[in-house]
């Protein structure tokens, strides 16, 4: 059965002063975040570098509708939201997915010919069970919350390494509630078909939500090596050093062959 549409979708946009011919970037947030996490630093910086940049809030997050049905929301609803956003863009984008948003992004890439795919500290498609075990060891109380369907802890120490405590706290306070069904779905192994566009995978060794081994496995499944940013926390678009990560992403996006001009890889 098709996903039920929501009445409003928040898409925050930052466009270059004039057209540059560079591919659009579409950013998809992770658990309990929303478009704001990209609007903070990445959107203006990417637009200044000449990339038309967009960040979408999945249903029930940020300024998008769907909060009342959040408890019944599934990952496929998020895929629907991203697909709808893509069709409103002028051309095929580079899709950037963070954490749980990386799973959504891979499910989109399976059915849509993206210009390129960027996975930031990606939640593993092959099941987050290992991460849950690690979380349980690290923060036992969190395991209980997650099992009961409450949102995983988005405390500053989980998300950030380098930020000053006040800023870290303010970002942490902006996180919201996640769909319990989506959180549970993270534990199920999912499979995607072959993805033919170029892929960039970014991770950090200090990530307290996604283990190094899982980032490596995700990268391997796309035939690439992850690019590591030591010293950063899970939220690489907000933590100190976000500009270095963005530079890597923009280098990748800027070097992509035009859509429909070159033979895709894979």
């Amino acid at each position: 059965m098709p996903s039920r549409p929501v009445s409003h979708r928040e898409v925050i946009t930052a466009l270059p002063a004039e057209p540059t011919g560079r591919p659009p970037l579409l950013m998809v947030h992770g658990i309990a975040h929303a478009a704001w996490c990209f609007a903070e630093n990445w959107l203006p910086a990417a637009a200044a570098a000449g990339f038309p940049s967009y960040a979408v809030s999945l249903r029930g997050h940020g300024g998008s509708a769907g909060g009342r049905r959040l408890r019944r929301t599934l990952t496929r609803d998020y895929v629907h939201d991203v697909m709808q956003t893509i069709t409103e863009l002028p051309e095929p984008p580079v899709l950037i997915g963070h954490s749980m948003g990386a799973i959504v992004a891979q499910l989109v890439a399976e059915r849509y010919p993206l210009r390129g795919l960027v996975l930031l500290t990606p939640a593993p498609l092959h099941s987050a069970m290992g991460d849950l075990v690690a979380i349980a060891r690290d923060r036992p109380a969190d395991l209980g919350r997650a099992v009961l369907g409450q949102t995983l802890s988005m405390e500053p120490e989980v998300l950030f390494e380098g930020l000053d405590p006040a800023t870290a706290r303010s970002y942490s306070d902006r996180t919201s509630t996640e769909s319990p069904l989506v959180q549970w779905e993270l534990l199920l192994p999912q499979r995607v078909g072959p993805i033919r566009c170029p892929v960039l995978v970014i991770g950090t060794p200090q990530d307290r939500l996604v283990r190094v081994a899982d980032v490596e496995r995700t990268a391997r499944s796309h035939g690439v090596d992850p690019v590591w940013f030591p010293g950063m926390g899970h939220d690489v678009m907000l933590d100190t050093g976000w500009d270095g990560v963005l530079d890597t992403v923009l280098d990748f996006a800027g070097d992509l062959p035009p859509w429909g001009r070159a033979r895709p890889q894979g």
Partner: peptide
């Protein structure tokens, strides 16, 4: 109906 008729990689607008 719309979901069975559209191009799978370019859904019709909501």
């Amino acid at each position: 109906s719309k979901p069975f008729t559209q191009f799978p990689d370019f859904p019709m607008p909501d």
